[in-house]
């Protein structure tokens, strides 16, 4: 609420319970939007892979299997820590909650680090569309695969960055006591978002890394 205003608008809620369910429903609705947002990309992927199955398999073989697999493990573990943080805050163990969130955040950063390393590799191999892409003698549709690869993982990484920001904000709120056993919602709501971003990756991993055979 902006105190500088002479008549700040009233909060619309009658009590904390109502506020809490509204926040949850708000996040779920937002995630529905997100599903359709990524859904458009997955549709594009399906159509183009149907049209160019060999180029897509070829593209998949250019990705680092071990990076994709390691990142899957890293991300799933980070989701575990977010869930543990939610349990901890509900037990009123704020120290544990913060510890778990820090672990989740570090794993998230590790994911982005590995992703960045892979991007750098692709750049060296001239596999970045739009900047001197070299199909290495393979079909030109290879570029479509890498375009989708960068766009899908890039948007996913952008969502991760927002998630890391949200975790940082949570750490501060817990430190200030603004999020506690009495008001634990924020952890669960950020958690919902984090798990969603995790789920997107669970679809990206096989579609991008495992189809090369």
């Amino acid at each position: 609420m902006n105190d500088a205003l002479s008549h700040p608008a009233a909060p619309p809620y009658v009590d904390r319970d109502q506020h809490s369910v509204a926040n949850h429903l708000g996040m779920w609705t937002f995630l529905a939007t997100e599903i359709l947002f990524f859904g458009g990309l997955f549709t594009g992927y399906t159509v183009l892979r149907w049209a160019h199955p060999h180029a897509f398999a070829e593209g998949s073989r250019h990705l680092e299997f071990w990076i994709g697999t390691a990142n899957t493990a890293v991300l799933l573990t980070s989701s575990l820590f977010v869930a543990l943080a939610d349990l901890a805050i509900k037990r009123d163990d704020r120290r544990a909650a913060r510890r778990h969130l820090v672990a989740a955040g570090l794993l998230g950063a590790a994911f982005l680090g590995l992703k960045g390393f892979e991007y750098f590799q692709k750049f060296q191999e001239h596999l970045v569309p739009g900047s001197g892409f070299d199909a290495h003698g393979a079909q030109p549709a290879l570029q479509l695969f890498f375009f989708l690869y960068f766009l899908m993982t890039g948007l996913h990484a952008l969502h991760m960055l927002f998630g890391l920001g949200a975790i940082g904000w949570l750490l501060r709120q817990i430190g200030r006591g603004a999020v506690s056993r009495e008001r634990p919602d924020a952890v669960a709501i950020v958690g919902l978002y984090w798990h969603f971003v995790d789920c997107v990756w669970i679809f990206l991993y096989p579609l991008l890394y495992l189809i090369g055979g």
């Binding site: 529905a32 939007t33 997100e34 359709l36 947002f37 990524f38 859904g39 458009g40 990309l41 594009g44 183009l48 569309p129 739009g130 570029q143 479509l144 375009f147 989708l148 766009l151």
Partner: peptide
Amino acid sequence: LATPVLAITLVLMAMERLWGVGI
């Protein structure tokens, strides 16, 4: 449910225009 699909469609169109990738 519908607006995000427009958003991603415009992103794809803009990327194609920007990078000359022919999705």
